[in-house]
């Protein structure tokens, strides 16, 4: 389409684009700039204040925050401990360290918990959905259409509908009383939530792989199941990575079920639960909250930008669920 545009039209178009960029990026810009501030500057109104990496260093445990530094009482105890015999000294030191740990901002723990849950749930969901998607995109059998539509119906049952019954079911079989079992319940629920997207996206992709390649492998003596792992999976690698990242993002974001199941076990908090609890606690210092937000966002945003082409294609291929 070749068309003459007046300077005025072009200028107003770019203004529009500029406004859009500001609209989208405004909150992030503030998040970034606050995360590089000292605590006392956190609420100052200029966009740029004195620069520091303090918040990040404290979150990663490279530097102790003021709270973590020994209190006078602890210092005294510490000095006292040096004069005690070895066995007693260790007991006292342990006690001091334990108390110190209590006052730490346990960001890295939350980060690890989230990474573990989201990473593993996405992986499990990927395995189940590779098999399932292969089944309904490649094999003809009675009942296939019903199952395919059934998977779509899952869209109608959000977490809002399922929170009470799922909690009741897991509580009945005793999975809410112990932190490890609560984590396992969450793992199962996250896998469940990511399953429909994975099935749908993978099914769509598998249909684009010509069956003749598989057939050739089977003729060469490969079993049908072997052909899935040796032929279909390697050929669908971009789709599989896309689905994995997408499923990972769902787990990384999940708040509802995490807040229900692991509320009593602070050591097992995921990032969304941990950070929102911290927000209401003594640790709520804006600069630190913002640095924590940036670190939470970075892995996902980097993954996404690296895979942008595939991911946007994946979104629009139809299989999307929040």
């Amino acid at each position: 389409m070749v068309r003459k545009r007046s300077v005025w039209k072009t200028a107003s178009f770019y203004t529009l684009v500029g406004l859009l960029v500001i609209f989208v990026f405004y909150p992030f810009a503030w998040m970034l700039t606050i995360s590089f501030r000292y605590n006392i500057d956190a609420l100052k109104s200029g966009f740029f204040q004195k620069f520091t990496l303090n918040q990040y260093e404290e979150l990663f445990g490279l530097k102790q925050s003021i709270r973590q530094k020994l209190s006078d009482e602890q210092k005294e105890l510490y000095n006292l401990a040096q004069t005690l015999p070895k066995s007693q000294r260790e007991a006292v030191l342990k006690k001091i360290y334990k108390e110190q740990r209590k006052s730490q901002f346990p960001f890295l723990t939350y980060f690890k918990n989230s990474l573990f849950l989201a990473g593993l749930a996405a992986f499990l969901s990927l395995i189940v959905s590779i098999l399932g998607a292969y089944s309904f995109s490649r094999i003809r059998y009675p009942g296939r259409g019903t199952i395919q539509r059934g998977v779509l119906l899952v869209y109608l049952f959000g977490g809002t509908i399922l929170m009470v019954p799922l909690y009741q079911i897991f509580a009945k079989i005793g999975m809410t009383s112990n932190p490890n079992l609560a984590m396992l319940s969450l793992l199962i629920i996250y896998m469940l939530q990511t399953l429909p997207v994975s099935l749908y996206m993978l099914g769509n992709y598998f249909r684009t792989i010509p069956y003749s390649i598989e057939e050739a492998a089977i003729i060469d003596g490969c079993t049908r199941v072997g052909a899935i792992w040796r032929i279909v999976v390697p050929l669908s690698l971009p789709a599989i990575v896309t689905v994995y990242i997408y499923a990972f993002m769902i787990g990384w974001n999940e708040y509802l079920f995490a807040s229900i199941f692991i509320r009593p076990f602070p050591g097992y908090y995921t990032l969304p639960v941990g950070l929102s609890e911290l927000f209401n606690s003594q640790h709520a210092i804006w600069a630190k909250m913002m640095a924590a937000s940036v670190i939470t966002a970075v892995p996902v945003v980097v993954l996404f930008m690296a895979m942008e082409k595939y991911l946007t294609a994946g979104f629009t291929a139809g299989g999307v669920k929040e």
């Binding site: 909150p27 990032l271 909250m289 913002m290 996902v300 945003v301």
Partner: peptide
């Protein structure tokens, strides 16, 4: 794309 909890704090 940004994790919900991050955007929420920014807002």
């Amino acid at each position: 794309v940004t994790p919900l909890i991050s955007s929420v704090f920014a807002w």
